[in-house]
């Protein structure tokens, strides 16, 4: 039991980086960034490949950089070349499939055998006892969360938020949306890749298909968190993304243990949950309208 909780927490924190990245792209910038799936695998591929060469720390930084580059490509497509935002993400994502294979030496997966990872390095120091994995996962995610909150409070961060909040205003202020969107998407995808990098070293492997559906799972986490914590301030939103990710992993563990839902169906269930959650404002409006229609009949239209 303890083992299940521990694992759920570890995975929750590691995947929380994706939810935070989606908070930045989907909520703050108001762009559905579909680079995410490929970006996650890119992070894992770069991280595991370089760790296999014996540089686990360098691997993480390389993954961050690779993710940022992927985000920049998506931003470049939509800001400079006029590709619609959703399509820009899909195009980059498709291209990344080949890039990811290339990074892994044209194979569909790479594994670490005896090589060191961030996790084995921490275990060797003895810090954290049997909780060392959780310590590392939580440490990195919380650090990134703090950095993200700090960043969104700076002049550049405020400009990025304004870009997503009011395009009319941005055009009339001296904010260059090309620049803010580029920075925003680069940072978001760097975080996604970081998630992939940490998960890759945690599982000691990277697989070309490990990113499938990550964007929807990330959105599910974000929405779960927002439902629980609300969306009032940036700080709260980031905490919500983390908490949502942990809740999701707990639900996942429960489903896995109890088999309430066959595990093969989990992606479908996640997709339905996300669709319903995003649709809820329009569903609510529709329900309210129908209710009014019924009432207006009863009271003779008054």
């Amino acid at each position: 039991m303890l083992y299940v909780i521990q694992t759920a927490l570890e995975l929750g924190f590691m995947y929380a980086l994706v939810a935070m990245a989606l908070f930045l792209s989907y909520r703050v910038l108001d762009i559905a960034d579909l680079t995410t799936d490929g970006g996650f695998v890119l992070g894992a591929a770069v991280s595991v490949t370089i760790a296999a060469m014996g540089h686990p720390v360098l691997a993480v930084f390389a993954a961050l950089f690779a993710g940022a580059a992927a985000g920049f490509v998506t931003a470049f497509l939509q800001t400079r070349l006029g590709v619609p935002p959703i399509l820009a993400g899909i195009v980059t994502n498709t291209g990344l499939y080949t890039v990811n294979l290339m990074v892994m030496g044209w194979s569909s997966n790479v594994s670490l055998l005896k090589q060191e990872t961030l996790f084995t390095m921490l275990r060797a120091t003895g810090i954290g006892g049997s909780w060392y994995k959780l310590m590392l996962a939580a440490g990195i995610t919380i650090l990134m969360g703090c950095l993200l909150v700090w960043f969104l409070g700076t002049r550049l961060g405020l400009s990025i938020r304004a870009t997503g909040d009011n395009t009319e205003m941005v055009r009339a202020s001296s904010i260059n949306p090309v620049f803010t969107i580029s920075v925003g998407l680069s940072v978001a995808n760097a975080m996604t890749a970081l998630s992939g990098a940490i998960v890759g070293q945690y599982q000691k492997s990277a697989d070309i298909n490990s990113g499938t559906g990550i964007v929807v799972i990330g959105l599910a986490c974000l929405i779960i968190g927002e439902t629980v914590f609300g969306r009032r301030s940036v700080g709260r939103n980031v905490v919500a993304a983390m908490a949502g990710s942990i809740v999701y992993r707990f639900l996942y563990a429960i489903i896995l243990k109890t088999s309430i839902v066959p595990i093969e169906c989990l992606k479908l269930v996640t997709a339905i949950v996300v669709a319903l959650a995003i649709a809820s404002p329009s569903l609510r409006d529709w329900a309210a309208l129908e209710k009014r229609k019924i009432h207006s009949d009863k009271r003779g239209g008054r």
């Binding site: 405020l158 304004a162 205003m169 009339a172």
Partner: peptide, 8 residues
């Protein structure tokens, strides 16, 4: 509504 960012 054009001159300010509503959620900030």
């Amino acid at each position: 509504l054009k001159g300010t960012a509503p959620h900030m």
